[in-house]
Design a protein around this nucleic acid. Structure first.
Length: 117
DNA sequence: ATTCTGACAGCAA
DNA sequence: TTTGCTGCCAGAA
């Protein structure tokens, strides 16, 4: 089979682009982004890429990316544990116990919204 | 070069 | 039902 070694740089860039495309007031999941990038089950890498996004001058709305449970798993990486929650609440998210209650309502799937890359 | 970790997700017991 | 383990891919030590 053809082993297409996708440029890892593209992966990171893809994560950044998709993350920036997340509309305000919406959230998506690591798995959704990974799936959208055709990386399949490399959802963990999405989080890793977002981790590097913090060093970017650009504002990456990484707070709009949560796990499939709607839980703010990355809250601890925003400097302050409450920063992520504050940002999400400011955009209309209803968060209880670090979990987005209306996650299903605010979920934004790139594969469904962007249809084509 | 090898090993481990990691902002997840799916499946098994 | 909940809890735990494995798989995934890349980067860091």
């Amino acid at each position: 089979m053809s082993n297409n070694k996708q440029g890892n740089n593209d992966f990171f860039s893809g994560v950044y682009e998709v993350t920036k495309l997340i509309p305000p007031g919406r959230v998506t999941t690591y798995g959704a982004i990974a799936r959208f990038l055709a990386t399949g089950r490399s959802a963990r890498m999405v989080g890793w890429a977002l981790n590097a996004s913090g060093g970017r001058s650009e504002f990456i709305p990484a707070h709009r990316v949560v796990n499939r449970k709607g839980m703010l798993t990355g809250k601890h990486h925003f400097g302050n544990s409450s920063t992520m929650r504050q940002l999400l609440e400011n955009e209309g998210m209803i968060i209880e116990n670090d979990i987005i209650l209306n996650f299903n309502e605010k979920f934004w799937d790139p594969s469904s919204e962007l249809t084509d890359f």
